[in-house]
Design a protein around this nucleic acid. Structure first.
Length: 890
RNA sequence: GGGCGGUUAGCUCAGACGGUUAGAGCACCUGCUUUACACGCAGGGGGUCACAGGUUCGAGUCCUGUAUCGCCCACCA
C-alpha cells in the first residue's frame, strides 16, 4: 500500500501532508493495540497521565517522544508492546480552573452546591478532556487508545476504594487531628509535597512576655505575632544556661493576658533570635510537636479562611496579614515590642494557587507511611527497580528515609470521594468498596459519607495496576504487570514514582516497573523554565506545524543526557528538520534511480558484494546498527540518534551515494542499486522509532520500487528492527575506503587552498607505495570526486618532475598535481613546510611516549602497538614530505 | 543545614570501561545553480576541557580541595 497519491516526490519533505494520513493508517491497522500472547515477550510502558485540564506542552512532548521511541523500538523487535495512555482528573488543579471560571461569572462552588458543581466539572471535562488526546495523536504517539483510562472511570475508582479499604483494615490508614498544610484559598488540606517554599523578606519581632510572678520578662522572637493568641507555651532549650531558672514557671501572654508555661525542648535552636520560642501548636508544625511533647493545649487563632478568631480578642475578624500589622502595632503601643529586625526566610505556598499556606490543626485522613516506605526503599537498594540516571537513587532513598505520614484527604469536591460512612447512631465507621447503605456496627441506615475526596496522587499511585484491571484478576494484569520502563521528569519522582513503587508493592507484591527513566525539564533558549506568566511557552503543535513532528521529536531527544535539563531553540528544530529533509532527498535519489532500472534484484540478501565500496558501507551500517542498539538498551536515546544521523549524512549521503553515482555511469561496474536499496531500507527501520513519519512515508515509496523478493510487511512500524550482522564487518574495506576518502579530501583541500576553479579538471599522479587499490577499481571514484581529468600511477622519482603541488596521504602515498605556472612555488613550499612541521611535532610526541620505559612496561600491548604503528606512519609521511621539499626550489 | 548537578569552540550541548592530533549542531570565513537535497555541496578557522593539588606509564574522564552558577530536600521560630 502507498499513502502517497502520486509517485512524485517533491524536492522538500513536507510533513504536514503526510503525518495525518499515516497516523490514521496506523490506527486503522490496529498496530498500537498489542495482543495478550504468552508466546511473546511483553513490553509495557504506562503513560504518565496528563491532566484533563491541560494543553500539551513541551514537557509532555518530551516524555511522549521518549516513550514512543522505546515502544516502537520494542514493537519492532517483535515484543507485544503496550503503551498505555491515561488521563488524570487532577483534583485540585482542575477544580481551581473551573472555580476561576465560576468566579469570572460572579459565582462560586459554594453557591452552586456540590451536585451542580460536579455537573459543571463533568461538562467541562466533556468539552476539553479530549483535547490532549488529539494533541498526543498529532505527536505520533503509538499508544493503545483502545485501553485509554480516566482516573474517575469505574475501574480505577474501584481500585481506589479497594486500596483504601485494604490499607484501612491493615491499620495503615487512620484519621486523626493533626497539623497539616492548609490552603485558605482552596479550603483544603495539602500534603507536604504540595507546598512550595520560597525565600521571602519578612520581619522578626522581638516581644517581651512578662513572668507571671512579676520578676522581669522573657523575650521571644517571632515572624508571626498574630498567632500569639494561639500561644499555649514558651519553649527554651533545656540546657540553655540563660533560662534554667525559668523552666517550669509561667509567663503572661501579652494582650491576651493569660498565663502560659515555660517548657524545655531540644528542638530549640539556642542561637536563633533570643533562644526563646513562643509555642503555637495550632499554627506551626514544630510548635505542634513541642505541644504534643509537653501536653500544651491547642488554641486556633486563625480560621480556615485566614481570619483571626475570637481568641484574638479585639483583632477578631481581621485578615491574617492585617492582623499581624495591628498586633505588632498594639504590642509596640503597650511597650511589649523590643525591636523588629528584617529576616529573610522561606514561606510555604500552595502549589496550585500560590497562596501562603497556613499550618492548621484539623481532622484528616493519613497514610502511615513507614511500613510502605521500607519495602519501596529495599526495591531500589536491591536493584529490583533501577533508576536512570543512577544518581537519582540517592535522592529517592534520602527522601524516603525522611518521609512523614501522608495526608490524603482533601476538602474538595472533584475526585474520588473517601469511601467512609459515619453512623449518626453509634458513631462507628463503615469503610466499603460498594456504596454503604447501613452502618457496619449497628446496622443503622442513618449514615453519611465523608464529604472529602482523596489526594489525586492516591489514585495515581495505583495507576500501574489499576489500569490493567486490578483488583480484578484480568489477563491484562497477569500478562502486562509489572511494566518495564517508567518514563517521567525528575520533578515528580516523589509525587508519583515513589508512591507507585509503594502502592505497587503493597497491592501486587512486586514493584510496578523495572526501570525508572528520568528526563530533564524543557527550558527555553535562555534556559528559563517555560511558564505562561513569562510568556516564553512554546506550543508543540505550532512547532510541529512549522518543522514537522519528526523534527520536534528529534530536537527534544537529541543532545541531552538523561536527567539533564535541555534547552529548545529554533536552531535545534531547524537542524532536525534539515535532517528529515536530507533523508527525504537521499531517498528521492535512491527511489528515482530504482524507477529506471530493475537492477535492484537481490537487494535483501546482497549475494554479490564484490565491490569494495559496498563492503565498506555494509560494514559501517552494521557497526551503526550495533551501536544504536547498545545505546537504546542504555536509554541513551540522544546518542543512539546521533549514530544514525552521522551515518546517514556523513557516510551514506556524502560518500556512498557519491560513489554510487559514479558507478552508475559505467555499465561495466557492478550496480550499486541493490546496496543502495538495502542500506537505505535498513537505515529507515533503524531510524523509525525516532522519526516515525518521514521513515514510514519514504519506506512505503521505496518498497514499492523494490523487487518483491519475499513478502514485506505493509508498514515499517511492524517490520523487524535491524540487527547487527557481524559477518558484514570488514576492517580491510573500511581502512581502504578511509584512505580513498583521505586522498580525495587532500586533493580537494589543495584545490580549495589554491583557489582552483572547481570546474577545472586537474591531472594527478600518485606514487602508490603499494596502495594499488587507489588507482585500481577506485580510479573513477577518485577522479570523479576529486575532479581529475587523469589519474596515473608513477614512481617516486617521476613525481616531483611533474612539478606543481604535491601532497602526501595514507602516510606515504605522494600525490602530485601538476599545475604549471599557475602555482606560486614559494607559497607551495610554505604550505608543505607547515604540513611537515605538524607531522614532526606529532611524531615527537608519540616518540617520547614510546621512549618511556614505564609506558612500554605498563600499558596494554595493543595500546603500545598502536602507538608504534602511528609513529611508523608519521615517520614515513615525514620522510616523503622531506623528499618532496628537497626537490622544490627554495 | 544537608544533598545533587553544571562549568568542554562565539552559542547550545555530546563525550560507557582512563589510551588516536577532544566532537556535533548553530554561528563565522572562503568557494560553489556538481541533474537527491541552498532545509544543500566542498574547504577552512576556532578549545591550556572553571581553578589548584593528587593517583597513574597516561586524566576532559578517577580522588581531594577551591571558585562559580543552578536545582532538590529540611520543623532556622
Amino acid at each position: 500500500m502507498s499513502l502517497s497519491s502520486s509517485n512524485e516526490m517533491p524536492r522538500a519533505y513536507s510533513p504536514n501532508e503526510v503525518e495525518q494520513p499515516l497516523y490514521r493508517f496506523w490506527m486503522e491497522k490496529g498496530y498500537f493495540t498489542p495482543t495478550v500472547d504468552p508466546s511473546k515477550k511483553p513490553f509495557v510502558v504506562i503513560m504518565p497521565l496528563p491532566n484533563v485540564t491541560g494543553d500539551l506542552h513541551l514537557g509532555h512532548a518530551l516524555t511522549m517522544s521518549i516513550q514512543d521511541i522505546l515502544t516502537r523500538w520494542h514493537r519492532m523487535m517483535g515484543e507485544s508492546a503496550l503503551w498505555l495512555p491515561g488521563k488524570d482528573h487532577a483534583g485540585i488543579a482542575t477544580q481551581v480552573v473551573v472555580e476561576r471560571q465560576l468566579a469570572s461569572e460572579g459565582a462560586s462552588r459554594q453557591e452552586l452546591g456540590r451536585d451542580k458543581f460536579l455537573e459543571r466539572m463533568w461538562d467541562w471535562v466533556g468539552l476539553y478532556g479530549g483535547k490532549i488526546e488529539e494533541q498526543l495523536k498529532s505527536m505520533g504517539a503509538s499508544c493503545d487508545w483502545s485501553r485509554l483510562v480516566f482516573t474517575l472511570d469505574p475501574g480505577p475508582s474501584r481500585a481506589v476504594r479497594t486500596a483504601f479499604l485494604n490499607l484501612y483494615e491493615k491499620g495503615l490508614i487512620y484519621r486523626g487531628e493533626r497539623i497539616i498544610n492548609w490552603c485558605i484559598r482552596c479550603s483544603t488540606a495539602l500534603s507536604d509535597l504540595e507546598v512550595e517554599y520560597e525565600e521571602e523578606d519578612g520581619s522578626l519581632f522581638y516581644v517581651n512576655y512578662p513572668l507571671e510572678d512579676g520578676e522581669g520578662s522573657i523575650t521571644v522572637a517571632t515572624t508571626r505575632p498574630e498567632t500569639m493568641f494561639g500561644d499555649t507555651g514558651v519553649a527554651v532549650h533545656p540546657e540553655d544556661p540563660r533560662y534554667q531558672s525559668l523552666l517550669g514557671r509561667n509567663v503572661i501572654l501579652p494582650l491576651a493576658n493569660r498565663p502560659i508555661p515555660v517548657v524545655g525542648d531540644e528542638a530549640i535552636e539556642r542561637e536563633f533570635g533570643t533562644g526563646v520560642l513562643k509555642v503555637t501548636p495550632g499554627h506551626d508544625i514544630v510548635d505542634f510537636e513541642i505541644g504534643q511533647r509537653h501536653n500544651l493545649p491547642i488554641v486556633m487563632s486563625v480560621d480556615d479562611k485566614g481570619f483571626l478568631t475570637e481568641a484574638a480578642g479585639q483583632f477578631q475578624g481581621q485578615e491574617r496579614f492585617e492582623g499581624r500589622r495591628n498586633t505588632a502595632a498594639e504590642l509596640e503601643r503597650q511597650g511589649h515590642l523590643v525591636k523588629t529586625e528584617p529576616l529573610r526566610h522561606s514561606i510555604g505556598h500552595c502549589q496550585r494557587c500560590a497562596t501562603v499556606v497556613e499550618p492548621f490543626v484539623s481532622k484528616q485522613w493519613f497514610i502511615k507511611i513507614d511500613p510502605l516506605a521500607k519495602p519501596a526503599m529495599d526495591a531500589v537498594k536491591d536493584g529490583k527497580v533501577r533508576i536512570v540516571p543512577e544518581r537519582f537513587s540517592r535522592v529517592y532513598l534520602n527522601w524516603m528515609e525522611n518521609i512523614r505520614d501522608w495526608c490524603i484527604s482533601r476538602q474538595l469536591w472533584w475526585g474520588h470521594r473517601i469511601p467512609v460512612w459515619y453512623c449518626d447512631g453509634c458513631d462507628g465507621l463503615t469503610v466499603s468498596v460498594e456504596d454503604a447503605t447501613q452502618c457496619r456496627h449497628c446496622g443503622s441506615e442513618n449514615i453519611t459519607q465523608d464529604p472529602d475526596v482523596l489526594d489525586t496522587w492516591f489514585s495515581s499511585g495505583l495507576w500501574t495496576h489499576s489500569t490493567l484491571g486490578w483488583p480484578g484478576e484480568t489477563d491484562d494484569l497477569d500478562y502486562f504487570y509489572p511494566s518495564h520502563v517508567m518514563v517521567t521528569g525528575y520533578d515528580i519522582l516523589f509525587f508519583w514514582v515513589a508512591r507507585m513503587i509503594m502502592m505497587g508493592i503493597e497491592n501486587m507484591g512486586e514493584p510496578p516497573f523495572e526501570t525508572v527513566f528520568l528526563h530533564g525539564l524543557v527550558r527555553d533558549a535562555e534556559g528559563r523554565k517555560m511558564s505562561k506568566t513569562t510568556g516564553n511557552v512554546l506550543d508543540p503543535l505550532e512547532l510541529t506545524d512549522t518543522y514537522g513532528t519528526d523534527a520536534l521529536r528529534f530536537a527534544l531527544t537529541t543532545g541531552a543526557a538523561p536527567g539533564n535539563d535541555l534547552r529548545i531553540s529554533t536552531d535545534k528544530l531547524e537542524s532536525s528538520r534539515n535532517f528529515a529533509n536530507k533523508l527525504w532527498n537521499a531517498s528521492r535519489f535512491v527511489i528515482g534511480s530504482l524507477e529506471y532500472a530493475d537492477a535492484a534484484q537481490g537487494w535483501r540478501e546482497l549475494a554479490d558484494v564484490s565491490h569494495r565500496e559496498d563492503r565498506w558501507i555494509l560494514s559501517r551500517l552494521n557497526r551503526v546498527i550495533g551501536r544504536t542498539q547498545e545505546y537504546l538498551e542504555r536509554f541513551e536515546i540522544g546518542e543512539a540518534q546521533r549514530e544514525v544521523y552521522d551515518f546517514l549524512w556523513n557516510e551514506f549521503c556524502d560518500w556512498y551515494i557519491e560513489f554510487a553515482k559514479i558507478r552508475m555511469r559505467d555499465d561495466a561496474e557492478p550496480s550499486p542499486l541493490p546496496t543502495l536499496a538495502h542500506v537505505l531500507e535498513k537505515t529507515l527501520r533503524l531510524l523509525h522509532p525516532f522519526m516515525p513519519f518521514v521513515t514510514e512515508e519514504v519506506w512505503q515509496r521505496l518498497t514499492k520500487q523494490l523487487p518483491n523478493e519475499d513478502a514485506l510487511t505493509e508498514s515499517i512500524m511492524i517490520a523487524p528492527y535491524p540487527e547487527e550482522d557481524a559477518s558484514r564487518i570488514d576492517e580491510t574495506s573500511e581502512a581502504e575506503v578511509a584512505q580513498i576518502i583521505t586522498l580525495v579530501r587532500s586533493i580537494r583541500n589543495v584545490r580549495a587552498q589554491l583557489r582552483i576553479n572547481p570546474r577545472q579538471e586537474l591531472q594527478a599522479s600518485l606514487d602508490l607505495q603499494g596502495h594499488d587499490y587507489l588507482v585500481g577499481d577506485e580510479v573513477e571514484a577518485v577522479k570523479g570526486l576529486a575532479r581529475l581529468r587523469k589519474l596515473s600511477g608513477a614512481d617516486a622519482s617521476q613525481v616531483p618532475q611533474d612539478g606543481g603541488v604535491v601532497t602526501v596521504v595514507a602516510g606515504e602515498v605522494v600525490v602530485a598535481l601538476p599545475l604549471g605556472e599557475v602555482i606560486d612555488l614559494a607559497q607551495e613550499r610554505r604550505r608543505l613546510e607547515g604540513e611537515r612541521d605538524e607531522a614532526s611535532k606529532h611524531l615527537k610526541r608519540v616518540d617520547s611516549l614510546l621512549a618511556r620505559p614505564q609506558f612500554r612496561a605498563k600499558a596494554p600491548e595493543h595500546v603500545v602497538e598502536r602507538e608504534r604503528e602511528r609513529a611508523q606512519g608519521l615517520r614515513e609521511r615525514l620522510k616523503r614530505l622531506e623528499e618532496v621539499l628537497a626537490q622544490l626550489p627554495s
